[in-house]
């Protein structure tokens, strides 16, 4: 997949880039603020994105997510505070909560790769939180 990483913590962004590339994907763009996103999207060919909620210009990750979702680009949030997400997750496939584990990220990446390639039959891994899980959390436990 051609992947974009939207993350303001440089060390985390670089590490995620290595993990994504190790899994056989290409990172075609890195953004640390929402303003850098449109250029990467315009260059075209983007197949997937990781989006942090809090970026250098504030909690603008959700807007970035809505924009991606409007363009039909699948993405997930990677954030330390997924409680800030709106109930519909702004159209994201799901969210990975920071600090994630190497296994958790690897499993999520394999799942995303399958979903993006059209295989909808897989079960999401434990590390990937879906919008309905959060609804269950709020009303349940």
């Amino acid at each position: 997949m051609k992947v974009m990483i939207v993350e303001d913590e440089m060390l985390l962004a670089m590490e995620l880039e290595s993990e994504v590339e190790a899994a056989g994907h290409a990172v075609v763009g890195m953004a640390s603020s929402s303003a850098q996103v449109p250029d990467i999207v315009r260059d075209g060919g983007l197949e997937f994105a990781f989006v942090d909620i809090h970026l250098q210009d504030g909690p603008t990750g959700i807007e970035v997510g809505r924009m991606l979702s409007g363009k039909g680009i699948p993405y997930i949030f990677v954030s330390g505070n997924i409680k800030k997400l709106p109930p519909d997750f702004a159209g994201a496939l799901g969210a990975i909560e920071k600090p994630y584990t190497m296994n958790g990220m690897a499993n999520a990446l394999a799942y995303i790769d399958a979903v993006v390639s059209g295989d909808e039959g897989r079960l999401p891994p434990a590390s990937l939180v879906l919008a309905q899980d959060v609804g269950y959390r709020a009303s349940g436990r």
Partner: peptide, 21 residues
């Protein structure tokens, strides 16, 4: 509490990134 929690999480993620690197 949320601010401290957020920082602890970020620091742990940073520590893990250093080791992974």
């Amino acid at each position: 509490v949320h601010e401290v929690d957020h920082r602890v999480k970020n620091n742990l993620a940073t520590m893990a990134s250093i080791v992974k690197m």
